[in-house]
Design a protein around this nucleic acid. Sequence first.
DNA 1: GCCGGTACTTTACACTGTACAGATTTCCTG
DNA 2: CAGGAAATCTGTACAGTGTAAAGTACCGGC
Lengths: 222, 222
Amino acid sequence: MTTEPASARGTLSREKVVRAAVEMADESGGKVPSTRKLAERLGVQAMALYHHFRNKDALLDGMVDFVFAEIEFPAEGVEWKSAMRDRAQSMREALIRHPWATGLMDSRANAGVATLRHHDAVIGCLRSQGFTVAGAAHAFSLLDAYIYGFVLQELALPFESPGDLEAVAGPILEQAAMEGFPHLAELAVEHALKPGYAYADEFWIGLDLILDGLERHRTTWT
Amino acid sequence: MTTEPASARGTLSREKVVRAAVEMADESGGKVPSTRKLAERLGVQAMALYHHFRNKDALLDGMVDFVFAEIEFPAEGVEWKSAMRDRAQSMREALIRHPWATGLMDSRANAGVATLRHHDAVIGCLRSQGFTVAGAAHAFSLLDAYIYGFVLQELALPFESPGDLEAVAGPILEQAAMEGFPHLAELAVEHALKPGYAYADEFWIGLDLILDGLERHRTTWT
DNA sequence: GCCGGTACTTTACACTGTACAGATTTCCTG
DNA sequence: CAGGAAATCTGTACAGTGTAAAGTACCGGC
């Protein structure tokens, strides 16, 4: 009496598991799936996953590296400013497309090969265009911190489209909650609530300021 | 036979719970305590917490606001550049002192009063020194993203002191893992592994670049 | 003295990651 | 080809999580 579900053999692999986990996390809007749900989607029992990953953290490492593999990185010859702009945009898009990724990256020290390749390419691009070793380190640290931090702010916003902003901020402003915070109120009324405002625009403003500053130090930085 | 633990009445309060939760999170090195552990420390049963917080998320909101209450914010008169430097340092210290806080801030849209007061003071300082409304918004977004992002990178590092760096990076470099990443290797050998290097220094380099850029746009930014 | 609300306890449930012990299929070696 | 070893997946189990629901002791006000 050989029951047919006996052999699910060969259905699993590191890559397939990671891909399924990423899909499910994307669908569920930011929550990493549980081992059981993930196993179910793969047509397998929960414990089967542990033959491909030491523990769940290893799976999460794989998921983070999967995201990094989607980020475009510059070739060495490309003009550095536009290269940095492109990779910033690409990184931002990837982190927004996979909103669970940012939350995983803290406390995750084990960089995968996609992550390393990406970092290497960025630094290579900077080095090939006059940045000193130290300068490239400074630039990378600064750019990465900014991009990462900005996306986190962006993801934490409680609204999706600029239209939603008014719906969210309006009541707050009217409530007494805003009393005692005059500058916040001013900023909201005269800036953030103006038609046409989108927080996303702030990304390019800050990035351009940083790139201009980097240009200024490019060849001289120690 | 009135058993004495019958009345733990009056032992709890929103503030006391938050304070204990923060303490426990700090002690455990970054993990938010479970409701049961937290209750135990407070000499109370787990469900007692739910009379003071709608759910655990509300507790986490309180913890985040507690951290913001520790961050120094500038008075309006103070010279803006040094004020921003001070608040950046203070924010960075607080986030490092409570390493669990960064992880909580994403997906946490409900700002508490300490958070609002802090933001208001920063924007007020900028506004009082020639920044336009839009300029203050740009500056705030940029500075906050950078500080936040930098601290996240810093906390993700797998070592604590500069001395540990060599111990961690050395083996990695020697291993074949580094093959194929020449620029990363160069950066490590010629910069990050040099004696006297500390990643923390990068914070001020990036911050000064940003502040210089802000100075340049201060009065003219739209 | 009673009485309603407040503050806490008790019990219970669904869900989590994963340790441990099989069962079965595949592959390598003699 | 035989047979043992290894790889892969299953079954069961356990400790831990957040929290819903109902119960119980205490309090201040009529």
